[in-house]
Simulated scan of single mutants.
Amino acid sequence: MVLAIIVVVIVVALVFDYTNGFHDAANAIATSVATRALTPRAALLMAAVMNLVGAFLGTEVASTVGSGIIDPPQGIAGLVVVLAALVGAIIWNLITWWFGMPSSSSHALIGGLVGSALAAAGTVHWEGVLDKVVIPMVLSPVVGFALAGLLMTALLWIFRRAHPQPLSRGFRHAQTISAAAMALGHGLQDAQKTMGVIVLALVVGGYHEGFEVPWWVILLAAGALSAGTYAGGWRIMRTLGRRIIDLDPPRGFAAEVTASAVLYTTAFAFAAPISTTQTITSSILGVGATKRLSAVRWGVAGNIVVAWVLTIPMAALAAAIAFWVLHAVLG
C-alpha cells in the first residue's frame, strides 16, 4: 500500500512538474518572442533543452523544499500530506494559467505543502518559510526591478549615439543568449522543487534516508519540466510579452540578463526557491519604467501582483481541501 501511494505521489509530482513547465515557459521566452528575436517554436525548443540542462546543475533548492518547509508524519499519513500539497499546487497552476496570470508555481507548491500540513495538524517550519520563501518572495522582485532599471539605464547611456536599426538587430542576436540563460536558470530553480517533493515522499514512505537527490529523480524531474516547457504556455506568454509593456530588443535583453542573475544567485548562494515568474515580471517592469512610467500598463501589473499575493494562501486552501478528501478516501 505504501509503495503504491509513493508511485502515485511521484506520478502526480511529475504532472505538477509538467504544468510548471507549460505554465512557466513564458518566463524564459516571452520577451524574446515579443521582440521577434526568436520564433515561438524555436524559442520553446531552446527553452526545453536549457531547462533540461539546468536541472542537473544543483540540488540545494531541492533540499530546502524537501526538508526545510514541513515535517509530515511517517507512512501513509505523511504521503497523503505530500500528495495533497501537489494536488493543491496543480489546481492553482491551472486556474492562473486559464486566466493568463503569471503566478508562481514555486509558491503554489510551498503553499500546498503548508496547507496540507496544517490540515493534517503536522509541523510547519515557519522560520524556514519566512527565511527561504517569504523574504525572498518580497526581495527578489524589488531587486529584479531595480537592477533591470539600472542595467537598462546603463545600456541607454552606452549606446546613446547608436543607430536604432543596427542596435535592435544586435540585441536580437544577444537575446538568443540571454533567453537561453533565463531558461537555464528556470531549470535550475524549478526542477529542483519537484525533486525535493519526490525525495520527501521517499523519506516519509521509508524508501530513502537523508535528502540527497537520487540520479533517477533528477532525470524524471528534468524530463517532465522540459516536456511541459516545450508544450508552451501561450496565454501567459501574451501577458508577459505584450500586455505589460511593448518590449524592444534592448529592453528584452536587459530584463532576461537581470532575471537570470537573480535566479543563479538565489539558487547557489542562498538555496532559496524563488519565483522565476516574479523575477522576470519585475525585471520587465524595471526596464519598462526607464522608457516612461506611462509606458507600463500598471493595471495589468497590479492584477499580476494580486495573483502573487493570493498564490500561497489559495494553493494552501486547495491543498487542505485535497487532504481532507484524500484522508476520507484512504482512511
Rank of each mutant, 00 (worst) to 15 (best):
M1D: 15
V7F: 13
A13P: 07
V15I: 15
F16L: 08
D17Q: 13
T19L: 06
G21Q: 04
D24G: 01
D24E: 10
N27H: 00
S32C: 05
T35D: 08
L44Q: 07
L45Y: 04
A48C: 09
V49F: 05
V49H: 05
N51E: 01
N51W: 02
L52I: 00
V53M: 06
F56H: 11
L57M: 14
E60T: 10
S67Q: 11
I70E: 09
I70M: 00
P72M: 08
P73Y: 04
G75Y: 04
I76P: 08
I76M: 15
A77S: 15
L79I: 10
V80R: 01
V82L: 09
V82T: 11
V82G: 03
A85R: 09
V87P: 08
I90Q: 07
W92M: 09
N93L: 04
L94P: 08
P102L: 04
A108G: 11
A108C: 04
L109Q: 11
L109K: 00
L109E: 06
V114L: 03
V114W: 01
L118F: 05
A119M: 08
A120C: 07
G122V: 02
G122F: 05
V124R: 09
W126D: 10
D131M: 14
I135K: 12
G144K: 08
F145N: 03
A146G: 14
A148T: 02
A148C: 00
T153N: 15
A154V: 13
L155A: 13
L156G: 14
W157H: 13
I158V: 14
A162M: 09
P164H: 05
Q165P: 00
Q165R: 15
Q165N: 15
P166D: 11
L167M: 11
L167E: 12
I177G: 12
M182P: 09
G185A: 01
L188I: 08
A191K: 01
Q192H: 02
G196F: 01
I198H: 05
A201G: 07
L202E: 08
G206W: 03
Y207D: 13
H208Y: 07
I218P: 10
L220Q: 03
A222G: 06
Y230M: 02
A231Y: 02
I236F: 07
D246F: 06
L247T: 01
R251L: 03
F253Q: 11
F253A: 12
A255P: 09
T258F: 02
A259R: 03
A259K: 00
S260M: 07
Y264D: 04
T266R: 09
A271G: 13
I274R: 05
S275Q: 04
S282G: 15
S283V: 08
G286D: 03
G288L: 04
K291F: 03
K291R: 14
R297Q: 10
W298I: 00
V305L: 12
A307D: 11
A307W: 02
A307T: 01
A307G: 12
V309E: 03
M314V: 11
A315F: 02
A316Q: 10
A316S: 12
A320V: 00
I321A: 14
A322S: 15
